[in-house]
Amino acid sequence: MLSEIEMRLLQNNSKELAIDSIFLGGGTPSLIEPKQLEKIFSIISKFATIKSTSEITLESNPGTLTNSKLSGFKSVGINRLSIGVQSFNDDELGVLDRIHSAKEAENVVIEAYKSGYKNLSIDLIYAIPGQTLRSWSSTLNKAVKLPVNHISAYNLIYEEGTPLFDNSVNGKVQPASNDYESKLFYKTVHELGEAGFEQYEISNFAKAGAKCLHNLKYWRGEQYLGFGASACGCVSGVRYKNVPDVHKYISSLKENTLPEISSEILTNKQKRTELIFLGMRSEGVFLDYLLEPADFEKILNYIEMLLQMKLATLNKGILKLTTEGYAICDEISLNLIP
């Protein structure tokens, strides 16, 4: 991976590149040793500048975070941890095949805080088979009492190729209905809101000043480089994806070629589609931008309806969805994209 970083940074004339966010995610990056991380950062620093104010996040699983790792990661520069708690209910963790218990997760968060991490985020999942409104509510309750300033709450996705997906197909597991998911979603927004977490994207909630900078970059259509098998990046309107197979990834780099499986130059229409749907999922989109197309009248009527139905608000020229709007964000985006 180090050689990929080197190749890409050189390719992108990175001397003038000032990096303000690094995110180590996907899989279980907390398995890595702090020393290895240090190597990665030093390669990056060799070819680019990492700003001192940078947000440097490490995704981690509760089972892998020992106290020594916590302090080790801190000392090499990690200043934000995103911990994959998923649930504070042991039965639900079992359904998700997680190796940690609710208690362990809770302890890890507290230990991390004690080790000096002021920016702590946890991931939670709702619409787990067997989950009730009450058990979800108690997970949320537990979460907001912990010293975290950011929470990501996703509804469970049945990804093809996972045991959960197979079980949903063969009927062993009954996925939550769309209507039930919506109840859980509204409960999430409500309870986190009460506790001072603002919804700044469909699944992301932060206390004041704690929004994840890195996420915002994706949603604002900014540029990012991704490294490693299966990683994606988007630079100067070109989006690439690396091969998912680790062996192929390594062998390709050994031959001194970028391990990309695909790369596409985004057309203006595609860029527009992305900016709109990503914006509608998060901080909103400028009304002027939405009304650029020739058939703007149709879009204007639609937006008026959104405002009337309180699915969106218009503030300082920005159309932003309300919680009810977020719940049907895809449906709404479909009417706004070209």
Binding site: R239, T273, F277
Partner: peptide, 22 residues
Amino acid sequence: IRKNVIAKCYGGDISRKRKLLE
């Protein structure tokens, strides 16, 4: 419809999600 949104959308998902919407 009560809910119609895919919860997760980060760097790697953007193209996939865009294609779905298209």
